[in-house]
Design a protein around this nucleic acid. Sequence first.
DNA 1: GCCAACGTTGGC
DNA 2: GCCAACGTTGGC
Length: 156
Amino acid sequence: MNHWLLKSEPSAFSIDDLRKRPRRREHWDGVRNYQARNFMREMRRGDLGFFYHSSCPEPGIAGIVEVVREAYPDPSALDPESPYHDPRATAADPRWFMVDVEYRHSFEPLIGLAELRAHPELADMAILRRGNRLSVTPVTADEWNFIASLAGHRKR
DNA sequence: GCCAACGTTGGC
DNA sequence: GCCAACGTTGGC
């Protein structure tokens, strides 16, 4: 099983929003970066991911989600009304993909950026590297386990 | 709102 | 294929 980190701006879509969805599931749509897309295509059912809140007052890891459907075409790319519309995408060559994720846990309080940076064990994480903008990144088993231990009794 | 970092675009 | 310009991201 592989581990991932998925970024979202909570003002647009937060882990609480996911928890309130029917069946606690949602499509992870709108990814428009090739490297991030390729990581999503590597995701398998049962993989776990950290849900990271970015561009907000308290950036950090807010919880855990599980991949429940593997990559399939992202219809928002074909929708002229969508902010994620890409005129180069076609039904035959959809170009962009999404997965479905299901809510697992929230961390309360979340594991903030400053706390993540305080641990040398996590220094290589993409999320902590300067200028990193990828919205989907892999997390190593060691990083995953370390953060899970930090989360400890914060799990809800 | 600022600014650094990075991906993408497009002219050549 | 190069690279400057531009747009976007995201922490502060």
